[in-house]
Amino acid sequence: MESSTIKYFEDTITLLEQTNKVNPYVIADFKNILYTDEASIREIERLCYFVISNLCDDRPLIELQDRNKNASWYDYFRLQVYLFLNGNKKYYEDKTAITVIGAIIIDDIATDVFNHLGVDNRLIPLIVSLIVCVIAKMSVRAWCEHFYNETIRTNPVLEEELKKLEGKK
């Protein structure tokens, strides 16, 4: 694992602990799984979702207004990240780019999306960092393929949304 990636994980976990909002045992699990070689993708995603849910005070993650309830803002946000990464394939194999990806997502995507959905501004960088940790753990290419196969393709709302967003580009 790249040292920049390890540093990114460490910084994110430290910030997470400082919020005092997240189940400490889940933080410990999340930390362990980031450093474990044989990690289950589903378990990484479950822990990431759990942590973000705690950060949002355990309100069921807000469903998109005026859309099918099967798409949560969490899915919608990841869709935007997917779109960005899929359009910038140079990041697919560049393992040192993880902090760059996080910064670009925060600047280019996150604020708009999260403000629109009423998520606390102060939590945005941390939520983005958590999702980026998952991407870094799996590799950008693997995450994109996994997200497309397991989430977008199984959810007609997200599939439709992806088509719309791709059309706008």
């Binding site: 378990e43 479950r46 979702y49 759990f50």
Partner: peptide
């Protein structure tokens, strides 16, 4: 459901 995504293990 939110519960499933948070609590159900592989």
């Amino acid at each position: 459901s939110d519960y499933y995504k948070k609590f159900c293990l592989d």
